[in-house]
């Protein structure tokens, strides 16, 4: 065996590992092809697809620019209101939970229990909360607000905890040397560090909540989702088109705004 062949066989062994993983993956994919049922697609599918596209290209402009309670503008505003209020309540609930689960603030067992609670809250899908809360408040945007608030808690608290555990405590040393009390250290050393982070996290979640709020209407929890599903069920594709256009534009605008704001907050 010459040196070149030796080098050839000396190639790291991780290949076997990669082959096994790939085999498992391919097996899973092939398996899933059998599970997915392709028969369900009828001939009408293409006609409907064409109609939907036509509807989007020729939206119902009256509905889109209508400012009455039935119009897209009003519904979008309602969706924003649901997302906004939901985010505010979510933030208010998440802040104490975040402090209770920060391992550098409370004893280990308490932080552990709070974390478990947060994981449980996060696992339940938003639609389930929506359906449950409708039983409490009746259908309408109020249920949507509560749903958004609960759904946001999990992620907000988790990101808040990261911010709290990342606090720069070196400032304490210098504040001690200035002669500050503990209260003063929290007020002028911690709060300025946290507000920028918390605001940025809140804005990020508002952006996500807007998407979340737009589908809550499907279960009757207010916002633009309900009219969308009605329009679809009655094959009014022009209305579907105008609702979708309004929704996509709104979400894009909010996303751009949220990215700008967060950049400003975090980088100054």
């Amino acid at each position: 065996m010459n040196a070149i062949e030796k080098q050839l066989y000396a190639k790291p062994r991780s290949n076997v590992y990669i082959y096994i993983i790939s085999a498992i993956l391919i097996g899973l994919i092939i398996g899933s092809v059998f599970v997915i049922d392709f028969e369900s697609m009828g001939n009408s599918g293409w006609t409907i697809a064409k109609n939907i596209l036509l509807g989007i290209v020729t939206p119902d402009l009256d509905l889109l620019l209508n400012f009455t309670t039935q119009g897209v503008m009003y519904l979008l505003l309602e969706t924003i209101a649901i997302a906004f209020l939901g985010t505010i309540i979510g933030v208010l609930l998440a802040i104490p939970l975040a402090f209770l689960s920060a391992s550098n603030v409370v004893p280990k067992p308490i932080s552990w229990i709070t974390r478990l609670l947060l994981i449980v809250i996060r696992t339940i899908p938003s639609l389930v909360y929506g359906l449950m809360l409708i039983r409490v408040t009746g259908p309408g945007p109020f249920a949507g607000v509560l749903t958004i608030a609960i759904v946001s808690i999990g992620m907000l608290a988790k990101l808040f905890v990261d911010a709290i555990e990342d606090l720069d405590t070196s400032i304490f040393e210098s504040m001690t040397s200035i002669g500050c009390t503990t209260f003063e250290k929290i007020r002028f050393g911690i709060i300025p560090q946290l507000t920028a982070m918390f605001l940025s996290i809140g804005i990020y979640r508002f952006d996500m909540n807007l998407r979340e709020a737009s589908i809550l209407g499907l279960v009757g929890a207010g916002g633009i989702g309900a009219p969308l599903i009605f329009a679809m069920n009655s094959y009014r594709w022009n209305e579907v088109g105008s609702i979708l256009i309004g929704l996509v534009i709104l979400i894009l605008i909010v996303e751009i705004w949220s990215n700008n704001m967060r950049n400003k907050l975090v980088r100054g």
């Binding site: 997915i36 979340e212 996303e255």
Partner: peptide
Amino acid sequence: LSILRTMPTLVSALIATFIFGLGTLAGT
């Protein structure tokens, strides 16, 4: 990409059920 990303998954699933019929294909 932006328009696809903006569309909530549930809404695209809903549209998919109209085109591909009820069932797992629409979800996929």
